[in-house]
Design a protein around this nucleic acid. Structure first.
Length: 116
DNA sequence: CCCGTGACCGACT
DNA sequence: CAGTCGGCCACGG
């Protein structure tokens, strides 16, 4: 199945066969973040019941094989900043801004309204 | 099995 | 407020 045909949660699960349980959990949880909202590495880690694995979550998202179907750009650091290489980070920042998420000084303004 | 590699985090200068 | 530091952890070699 081609990446462009992945639409539903079931599609994601099927496309991810072969990936580890942990990685599937990360991508599935991220897939559920609605447009206009964001989550954090920490929150995603808690969502998949692995509260101390934020770093591993970040590693998994770094390898995201389903971008932008799995919206990894909606996962930010706990201070609202974007991790990773500068250029890639600002690309994700522009992406979330385009989806209506407010930012300030290059960081997402983390409010209850937009936090998933 | 040990080790290096990170898109992390909270606490603490 | 900007750095540093130590703790954490899945993954691949």
């Amino acid at each position: 199945m081609r990446k462009s045909d992945v639409k539903t949660e079931q599609d994601v699960k099927e496309y991810l066969k072969g990936w580890s349980e942990f990685e599937r959990g990360v991508y599935l949880a991220t897939f559920k973040i609605p447009k206009g909202k964001v989550s954090t590495y920490s929150r995603v880690a808690r969502a998949i019941d692995r509260p101390k694995a934020q770093r591993a979550v970040a590693n998994a998202l770094h390898k995201n094989p389903l971008y932008p179907v799995v919206p990894c750009h909606r996962v930010v650091k706990s201070d609202g900043g974007f991790g990773g290489e500068k250029t890639a980070a600002s690309a994700r920042r522009r992406h979330v801004e385009r989806e209506g998420v407010p930012t300030k000084d290059g960081k997402v303004v983390l409010t209850e309204r937009i936090l998933f």
